[in-house]
Design a protein around this nucleic acid. Sequence first.
DNA 1: GTTCTAGAAC
DNA 2: GTTCTAGAAC
Length: 762
Amino acid sequence: MEMDIDDMCKAKGEEEKAKPIVVILMGAPGSGKSTFCEHIIRSSARPWVRVCQDTINNGKAGTKVQCLTNAVTALKEGKSVFIDRCNLEKEQRVDFVKLGNPQVEVHAVVLDLPAKLCISRSVNRTGHEGNLQGGKAAAVVNRMLQKKELPKLSEGFSRIMFCQNESDVKAALDTYSGFGPLDTLPHGCFGQKKPDTKVQLGIMKFLKKVEAPSNAGSSASSIHGSAASQIIEEKNSCCGGKETASSLSHTAGEEVKGCQDPGVGSTSRNGSSSDGPILAFPSISTADFQFDHEKASDIIIEKVEESMDMLGNAKLVLVDLTRGSKILSLVRAKAAQKNINPKKFFTFVGDITKLYSEGGLRCTVIANAANWRLKPGGGGVNAAIFNAAGPDLEVATKEQAKSLVPGSAVVVPLSSASPLSSKEGVTHVIHVLGPNMNPHRPNCLDGDYVKGCQILQKAYASLFEGFLSIVRAQAKLSQESNEKIKLEPSQSQGHSKDGPRNHSPTGDQKNKRDAVPEHEKSKKYKGSQNEVGGINSLRAGKVNAENDKLDVSTSKAWGSWAQALYHIAMHPERHKDTLLEILDDVVVLNDLYPKAQKHLLVLTRCDGLDCLEDVRKEHLQLLTTMHAIGLKWAEKFLDEDASLVFRLGYHSVPSMRQLHLHVISQDFNSKLLKNKKHWNSFTTAFFRDSVDVIEEISNQGKATLKDEDRLLSMELRCHRCRSAHPNIPRLKSHISNCRAPFPPSLLQNDRLVPAPSNANNP
DNA sequence: GTTCTAGAAC
DNA sequence: GTTCTAGAAC
């Protein structure tokens, strides 16, 4: 179906310019499509018509042709159109995309909220009609979601906005509510979460099934499919940067105001990040905090030098607003003196919030010289960055931490709705708090440069470490997707990436969380993978030494109930009757509350090693021993029951003190597995496979923790087929029957330990 | 880590 | 009414 351009122009008459658009909504039942339209229609200055297939026929469901006809009519009248139907499959939306023409842009708004939320909304909405309740609603939504295909610009959309949580939806609402009749919106993909920014699951993992599994009719129909279905996973080509980047490059300022220092390094201006991520950072503490510039420049150089080997193709850029900046010249001179690779580290004169638009330097990560409360305002870089990033940054920051200890940093993923993200290509802001030498500011060190230098060193170390964690996470993600594509070379139409997922909490959960008073939030906060130093360490009772008040001893950070394993490890002879094995380095015991048929713990006897966070290279041998002993026991159990499959790993943040390795069979058949936290602690990225931990310690010297609270409160998904379930009992009834193969990520690297006879088909 | 329980969800 | 979740207390 084509629009007649001439007709449309005539209809609009002289006034012109006002261009109607078509917005095709996509989302499962309960994703909020109608609410979305209604909200915008109420508040928008643009005339809109909502074309809803469910009600188009005098309040009853109509046909697709009716929808198309109504849409054409509305467009001829100069009205913009919402296509309010699920549109999850490409085939279902192709005719609506054809409404577009050179005069009429077609946008997509994808409401990809967690399945559980859609299910619960569907249930609520349809409950009174009595035809789509409970499991039925779940089945319908799950089945629809199985087929969903991510829209791509190549289908004919000029703009696609992905909404994976309530705040994304809010951003989209704001965008279209404020979208006046004469306005235009930038083209491209927006809102697709950057890889592994921990914010999201959702739509990034897009699934496409070639054929339905034989048991697809059950309410627990699989999302990932069973052995019968072929799953193809692919990193969606339209997301994560390429097209967004190209759309940005068209608008990049022709006039390059930013100025790279000639003496130290050089990089091409436009698209300069194409060959590696760049961290732009201001000099910490040398402005308002009045830290000595000579000392600060030494520390910058020292810390930059230390990071050089780990950078890979990533780069560091020290940024200052003014060309004559003293700190910049000092650093430049010292970098040259030390022969620091100018391609990996250089200085740049420009506004750190406009590096791309004004300077042509694309930095995916920028550092902020934050205040301890992580509040906007103040002045200088902090005020500038919070201003430029918009309110999203404040919200995202609060999710990560409430305050910062001097010498620490916190990584904050930036929502794609933030102008810093859309205009400058920034994916993360790292807040850093340096030492303060200014008596008019909090925590003044009164000229104590011994402490001051230590803190500044820590601050830069934390900053660079935070940046490297982002770089590593992104590298790992792209490597994984490459592997996936290699695995299924002939079927690259799907859109999913497997592996440990960072699911978003459901919207309602988020609301509840948002209702929690601030102090409560920070009280509950237990640190996150992206957080460096600071609060994460606080939880373990190991706060930067310079903050004496917070430097509590390790044992005090654990509740009395969390000491049981520690006591066993220190005095195994007192617990002989409960222990399965006592060795020099480790003891083995059954988990007191097993969450599966077989669930035991390999417990280190090393004093002072409480959790994964404490583990360093010197513990590599111990980790290997723990793994070997765990494996030995798994194999013993497998001898007795070849149907079992084991997984060995650590909790990112354990509840019990004293490092312990879980050896757990994957049946999860235990009445003691009672709640979401139990389930998610063994089936999300929160569970760190022993093999991966060993690899990370060996390569990076420490383990990656996935300790976000959200992981533990994620929607419940089957660990095999990844289908979503509304509650624990339903989930358990599903897993007792699910025989789908394990996700590919678990099948790699010996993460799963099956009986030898099942080695190829656990 | 568990238990207890209020109150939300069904 | 019963089931289920999630927060507080331990």
